[in-house]
Design a protein around this nucleic acid. Structure first.
Length: 782
DNA sequence: CACGTCACTGTTTTT
DNA sequence: CAGTGACGTG
């Protein structure tokens, strides 16, 4: 088995897979089979006898983890693969923090604040402190706090650090106090933000040697994917887990480090070898993805960067064609050019719509393409942007859930205490907040015992609050008995949300109704899936919330519909590949982003971003730029991006004879490669809760079915199972089934008997699943 | 306290 | 052009 496995790798990959005795850095050029090395390495470790639960693999997205698990499962069997410890830093450590919560003064039901919760809390604090929100812009302050946490600077340390000095110089001396208050408020609310998941993990492991030992013991081998995009906190956590044994393998490509705005530090990968004594470096340089000319063009671009680990990425695929730059007069024309190319290539090369991706720097750029594609009848799917879970009606519902699970959750409480309107207004909330702050307790504590905290309210108001309080308490009491779907349904009905949303039929409300039903359907799926997987005891509202908090819509990708053109930001395209890639909006003021042109470091990151975009392409890579663009509600003039001159002009064809756009050789600040350059610093699991149509933030014309009278999905009290009870008799290997949600799949294995019969099924689109037949809803096709 | 209107402002990427 | 906040009215 070992041999077969290794034979499918090239020499460099194989060497990287086989070395397991010490710290290891794998620099994997774009398209060089990075994921392949990781999956085979894990399979190799398993084959050598390591237990799957002793292997920790940290990925950048949940989706990547899921896919990798799946691929490993094909190599070594699904049962073993399922027991691997695999996920994002955030999801893996959130789980650990829940089980260790008491050790750091939290309750295991803690809420995870998303970015908008954080910002809103920061904003409230700024207001309460009487600071001017022009000097203290909530978003920037929140970002700064986030950045501090990524560097493991706790409030006390922050206060005496160079950061606080910097704030003082910038006439914002109070940031440190805001940070301090923010941390206290999170604690009172039994809440952690995304960054806290890392900070608290670090503190937990640092301050509790016994606990650290426990996890060192558990995670005998640690692998980190996309290491170039880890931040200081993540680096330190990995170090705490691996420093003795040194069984750590990090994989990444410094040329693809594009998340510094999130605290990612390219030095992590550049300095890995200094951090771990005796570490070995492996380089993967053969690109299997793209044609030669695409690889060469990408190389010519990235050469202009100063800070990088040298490598020679090459391709032995066909030579292919040069990059093409297609200048347009306007953003509108840009969209037309792209759509026409899609139609043309589809005809010429019998390509599917799913073979195309349109990549842009900012989400806002998707608009003109959407419009054009709708006009042309081209099916498309937008990734990212305003996700399903960020929509108002969904966030409202989730806020109720959150409050029921964790009544101390301040942001959830503020959000819904008066939604739907129940006569508890700003004045009242202000009083509650004031009292809570005075006594350093949560808002809920005050509401529960108004006398104790001397909260004075009008009688009428007090009655309303009491009603609200008992409503929440009522649900909380049911939380352990009812599954998430049943409880969620009654919350939506009883809270008045459904009444509010279903009271009118204007188009906006109609779409809110659909979203709500979608969401409820997703909860139902969640509960049923877990039952089918034999996890009957993990179907509660708290389980659902934990799932949902860290889910992004990139994760819910399983819809098997027709092929569609993909539209997304370049950041979201990391790790993906497409036969044809359009990189659009190559203009100054967009790409590089005007926010990122002040330092060499920033500019180099923008250039890496373009590098990432280009290297997503397998066969065709087409760049576009527009001369005029509709922005801020007016037409604006743009010039072509400076990066265009960075390409070797022999590798870039400009359409329409505007050859002057490309450079003869490197020029100007930022594109200086070997010439004198300006001063620089240094050297320089469950597969997707919402499985349906959770995408496009703006309605897509085609998909709105005229459902005469949309109404809340009627509740089912007892999961009906006759269908499957009949169905599973005689189900055996090789059968093809059609599952209610997963679609068509082939039965690979049937085990157990009677009540507990379990089948392993490989679905065409949903991957491999284990189903408890008692609950599964399917019919046998063959 | 709720709701409507008006003016302003700010625009990057996301676990 | 949106999304937000301030302000006034019912």
């Amino acid at each position: 088995m070992n041999e077969t496995l290794l034979n499918e790798l090239n020499e460099g990959q194989r060497a990287a897979v086989e070395y397991c005795d010490g710290p290891q850095l794998v620099i994997a050029g774009a398209g060089s089979g990075k994921t392949r090395v990781l999956t085979y390495k894990i399979a190799y470790l398993l084959e050598r006898g390591m237990n799957p639960w002793n292997i920790l693999a940290l990925t950048f997205t949940n989706k990547a983890a899921r896919e990798m698990k799946e691929r490993i499962g094909r190599l070594v069997g699904q049962e073993r693969a399922q027991r691997l410890q695999m996920g994002t830093f955030h999801s893996v450590f959130a789980r650990i923090l829940r089980s260790e919560a008491e050790n750091i003064g939290f309750n295991s039901n803690f809420t995870i604040y998303d970015q908008s919760d954080s910002r809103s809390l920061v904003k409230n604090i700024i207001k309460e402190m009487g600071l001017d929100d022009k000097t203290y812009k909530p978003a920037s302050v929140a970002d700064r706090i986030s950045m501090a946490k990524n560097h493991l600077l706790l409030p006390q340390q922050y206060a005496v650090s160079s950061w606080a000095k910097g704030d003082a110089d910038a006439k914002r001396p109070m940031v440190t106090h805001i940070y301090n208050r923010y941390a206290e408020r999170c604690r009172q609310a039994n809440a952690m933000d995304f960054d806290d998941l890392l900070v608290h993990t670090f503190v937990l492991l640092r301050d509790h040697e016994d606990i650290r030992q426990k996890y060192v013991e558990r995670f005998q081998y640690v692998l980190v994917d996309e290491y170039q995009d880890t931040n200081f906190a993540q680096q330190e956590i990995v170090l705490l887990l691996t420093r003795e044994r040194g069984h750590v393998c990090v994989v990444g490509d410094d040329a693809q480090s594009i998340y510094s705005f999130r605290g990612a530090n390219i030095d992590n990968i550049l300095n890995f070898q200094k951090m771990y004594d005796g570490s070995k470096l492996y380089k993967l340089e053969q690109n299997y993805r793209s044609t030669q000319l695409i690889v060469q063009a990408a190389n010519s671009l990235i050469r202009k960067n100063e800070r990088q680990i040298h490598k020679d990425v090459f391709s032995k695929n066909e030579e292919g064609e040069r990059l093409t730059l297609k200048p347009a007069y306007s953003d509108k024309e840009e969209a037309m050019i792209v759509c026409n190319d899609i139609k043309r290539l589809r005809r010429q090369e019998q390509a599917e719509y799913s073979d195309f991706a349109i990549l842009y720097r900012t989400n806002a750029q998707s608009r003109s393409f959407e419009e054009q594609m709708r006009k042309d009848g081209i099916p498309y799917r937008i990734y990212g942007g305003l996700s399903f879970y960020q929509r108002k009606e969904i966030k409202d519902v989730i806020a109720y859930f959150r409050l029921v699970a964790n009544p101390d959750d301040e942001e959830a409480l503020r959000r819904i205490i008066n939604y739907p309107a129940r006569g508890i207004g700003d004045t009242t909330i202000g009083k509650i907040v004031e009292t809570a702050n005075l006594h350093r307790v949560s808002l809920w504590t005050v509401i529960q015992q108004p006398m104790v905290f001397d909260l004075k309210l009008a009688k009428g108001t007090q009655t309303k609050i009491d009603a609200f309080k008992s409503m929440i308490e009522g649900w909380a009491a049911e939380m352990a008995n009812e599954d998430a779907y049943v409880l969620g349904h009654s919350i939506i009905m009883q809270s008045g949300i459904s009444k509010d949303i279903y009271s009118s039929n204007n188009p906006e409300d109609l779409s809110r109704q659909e979203n709500l039903e979608e969401f409820l359907g997703g909860m139902q799926d969640f509960v049923e899936s877990r039952r089918e997987e034999g996890r009957e005891d993990e179907v509660l509202l708290t389980d659902f919330l934990q799932e949902v908090a860290l889910l992004t819509d990139l994760d819910s990708d399983t819809d098997a519909d027709q092929p569609k053109v993909s539209l997304m930001t370049i950041h979201a395209a990391k790790g993906l590949e497409f036969p044809t890639v359009f990189v659009v909006g190559l203009e100054e003021n967009i790409f590089p982003s005007p926010m990122c042109i002040n330092t060499m470091r920033e500019l180099e990151e923008e250039r890496r971003l373009l590098y990432v975009a280009i290297t997503r392409a397998e066969k065709h890579c087409i760049l576009t730029c527009a001369q005029n663009r509709f922005r801020y509600g007016r037409m604006e003039f743009d010039t072509p991006s400076r990066f265009i001159k960075d390409f070797d002009p022999r590798l870039l064809r400009v359409e329409g004879g505007k050859a002057d756009i490309v450079g003869k050789q490197s020029s100007s600040f930022g594109s200086s490669g070997s010439f004198g350059s300006p001063a620089r610093s240094g050297i320089s699991g469950y597969s997707g809760g919402m499985r349906r149509n959770v995408q496009n933030p703006r309605p897509v014309a085609t998909q709105f079915v005229a459902d005469a009278k949309p109404r809340l999905v009627p509740i089912r009290h007892e999961a009906p199972r006759p269908q499957s009870a009949i169905g599973n008799i005689g189900l055996q290997e090789g059968n093809v089934i059609e599952h209610q949600r997963f679609g068509i799949g082939t039965v690979i294995k049937v085990e157990g008997s009677g009540e507990n019969t379990k089948a392993t099924v490989e679905f065409k689109n949903a991957g491999i699943k284990q189903l408890l037949l008692k609950f599964a809803k399917y019919t046998i096709v063959k």
